[in-house]
Simulated scan of single mutants.
Amino acid sequence: MNFKKYILVGALSIAVFSCAPRQEINYMQDIDNISLDNAVKNSRSTLQPGDQLVITVTAKDMDVVKPFNQSYSSTSTITQYSTPSSNSLPQQLPVSGPTYLVDTDGSIMFPQIGAVSTKGENVETLRTKLVDLISVYVKNPVVDLKLINFKVSILGEVNRPGQYTIPDGSTTLLGALALAGDSTPYGIRTNVLIVRNVDGQITKERVDLTSAQFINSPYYYLKQNDMIYVQPNANREKSARVDPNTGLYISVASVIASLVIGVLALTKN
């Protein structure tokens, strides 16, 4: 009888210590107390060298704007990622049009105009800038501008780590985590690392997702090539150091213990 008690206590101990401790897992718990005034200021990422822009100029008279469109058109394919709750697979969306590469000096060469600086500009402000420049030659031009290679990397304790292309060139930290299937139960939500490279300057910031304070920080809206790392908690780190066959050993030990108990019972009879 005492032997059975020991087996029961051992099994309960394994079950208790194998479970992750309860943590604060709710995002932005104090959202009702936070002003969102500053969040809008950081909503658009400034353009960086290496960005690929598809720019098309149209007007009522298309013949007039032909000189402002490149003679060649490239076709790129971007991935439209589904949300974690959707069962549909990511869709490949072709984006075609005159493509411009932001040079290392932060400029693009635009037909009829020449070098146009993109430093400090985002998609919206550059569109307005091009409209103003083209308006000198064309009445009421319309400029369509898309950033087609906006990417972020999501690593660590998330369900689908990897590099993600954002079709509309803008996303939030929470939006990016949603693409990666959210943090696993073993991820530390109070200490998420973001590494950023802007104009060659590498910065890093640790964010507490359980507090809405980060909404007004420069790291709520992500920038081109941001890297997000969700750190594993102590339990995950411990399990990573444990022999991967531990579960098998426990199962075998349980079977042996059951056989021993059965043999002892038969022996007593």
Rank of each mutant, 00 (worst) to 15 (best):
A265C: 06
D182P: 00
S153D: 09
V123Q: 13
T171L: 12
L36D: 07
V158M: 03
A240Q: 11
V64G: 01
P185E: 11
A176P: 04
R160Y: 14
T46I: 14
R196A: 00
M109A: 15
F17N: 05
R206L: 03
D182M: 14
I55F: 12
D32K: 10
S43F: 02
R196T: 04
L155H: 02
T165Y: 04
I215D: 00
E157W: 03
E124D: 12
Y221P: 00
L155R: 10
G156S: 13
L174H: 09
Y81Q: 11
I148W: 03
M62A: 13
F17A: 05
T99R: 09
A212I: 00
Q92C: 07
L145I: 14
L93A: 08
N149C: 10
P90T: 11
L209F: 01
Q224G: 01
I108V: 06
V65M: 08
V40I: 13
N269L: 10
T128D: 13
L222D: 00
F150S: 04
D37A: 13
T83Q: 05
T128W: 00
S73A: 15
A15I: 14
M1S: 12
P244E: 12
R206K: 13
I256S: 07
D182R: 14
I134V: 13
L193V: 06
K60H: 09
I25E: 14
Q52S: 11
V195T: 15
G175A: 10
G169K: 08
I188Q: 14
F214N: 01
K146V: 06
Q163C: 01
V142G: 07
N233Y: 03
L264S: 03
T190D: 15
Q48I: 08
R241F: 07
P141L: 10
Y219H: 02
V136G: 04
I25R: 15
L177V: 10
S45P: 01
D103L: 10
V192Q: 03
G10W: 12
V192L: 05
N42K: 11
Q23W: 05
A176M: 09
G262I: 09
V260D: 04
Y249D: 06
A115M: 15
Q91A: 10
